[in-house]
C-alpha cells in the first residue's frame, strides 16, 4: 500500500476544511452527514470497512498529525480502552447523545424551544458560536441541527486529538463509534467471524 498517493489519500483536507467552514457558517455542519451515512452505506451494501480503510479523512488527519508531525507519544492504549465493553458502551453513549441532539432539534422545529447558538464540547461545555449563524434564511430548526451536529464532530475530533497525543496516532479508531458500528454491521452480515 506504499507508493503512489491516490485522490482519497487527501481526504484529510476535507476534514480540516469541514471544521473551518463550520467555524465560519454553521450550516456547513450538515455536510458532516456524509461521514455518517457513507460508512454505513458501504458497510450495509458492500460489507466492508472501506470507509475506515480508505476514505476517512479524520483518521488520515490523526495519522498525519501524530505520525508525520510527531504529535503523539506513540504509546499503547490502556487495555480497558480497547475492550469490547468500552467500545460498545461508548457507541451506546454516543447514540444516546445523538438522539438527545435530534430531540433538541425537534423542539426547535416544534417551536417549543428557542435556537441555541452554542457548540457543546464534550457534551458539557457550551462554547459561544453565534458568529457562525447569519440569519433567518432557513428555519431555526435547521440551524439547531447544524449546531448539534457540529458539536458531535468537534467533540469527537477533540477526543481523538487527546488520545492521539497520549497514545498512538489513530487511537481514536479503536473506540470511534462509526468504526465500531461499521464493524458490527460487517460482523452481522457475515453471521460469524469464522473463515477469516
Amino acid at each position: 500500500m506504499k507508493g503512489k498517493k491516490r485522490w482519497y489519500d487527501y481526504l484529510w483536507i476535507a476534514s480540516l476544511a469541514y471544521l473551518l467552514l463550520g467555524f465560519c457558517n454553521i450550516l456547513f455542519a450538515w455536510l458532516g452527514l456524509l461521514c455518517f451515512f457513507l460508512p454505513l452505506l458501504i458497510a450495509i451494501a458492500g460489507g466492508s470497512k472501506a470507509y475506515c480503510n480508505r476514505y476517512c479523512g479524520r483518521g488520515q488527519l490523526f495519522s498525519l498529525l501524530g505520525g508525520r508531525f510527531g504529535l503523539s507519544r506513540k504509546r499503547d492504549i490502556p487495555r480497558w480502552m480497547k475492550s469490547k465493553g468500552f467500545r460498545y458502551g461508548f457507541l451506546l453513549f454516543f447514540f444516546a447523545m445523538f438522539f438527545q441532539m435530534l430531540w433538541n432539534t425537534y423542539l426547535v422545529f416544534a417551536g417549543v424551544q428557542d435556537l441555541r447558538q452554542v457548540v457543546t464540547l464534550l457534551w458539557t461545555f457550551r462554547l459561544p458560536w453565534h458568529w457562525a449563524y447569519h440569519g433567518t434564511l432557513v428555519h431555526p430548526g435547521v440551524a439547531q441541527f447544524a449546531f448539534g451536529f457540529y458539536s458531535v464532530m468537534l467533540t469527537s475530533t477533540v477526543l481523538g486529538l487527546v488520545t492521539m497525543v497520549l497514545f498512538k496516532p489513530r487511537s481514536w479508531c479503536v473506540y470511534c463509534p462509526m468504526g465500531t458500528m461499521t464493524q458490527l454491521i460487517c460482523k452481522a452480515r457475515c453471521g460469524s467471524t469464522k473463515g477469516l
Partner: peptide, 11 residues
C-alpha cells in the same frame, strides 16, 4: 477493530 492502519504501512 479493522481500522486498516496496518494495511497502509505494510511495504
Amino acid at each position: 477493530v479493522a481500522c486498516g492502519c496496518c494495511v497502509k504501512v505494510c511495504p
